[in-house]
Amino acid sequence: MCLGIPGQIVAITDESRMMAMADVSGVRREVSYAPVLTGSPADLIGKFALIHVGFAMAIIDEDEAAKTLEALRGLGEAQETLEAMAEGAKALEAQ
């Protein structure tokens, strides 16, 4: 279950009810930031949060995202090298 999608907090709309405007690819929706408030609400502006049913449920950890992507990129490059080697071997055989 549980559709969740990254959205950027772009403005605080109602501090008394802990509401902010989130932007998902140009689509805006007011969401509650109650679950992710740790300091001042203004600090949330610009951050990416995981949005679920109108709530910002988690702030995306940029370092962790970068780490995961780095590992995936490494795999991708290794794969390319392997494929290039296989191509090279095939070309040699053909000669």
Partner: peptide, 20 residues
């Protein structure tokens, strides 16, 4: 879409499938 498109990269998928 940030934090979405990067995780749909076909090249990395191919590598993961090979490893799997």
């Amino acid at each position: 879409m940030r934090y979405v498109q990067e995780f749909r990269d076909p090249k990395a998928a191919k590598a993961l499938l090979a490893a799997i």
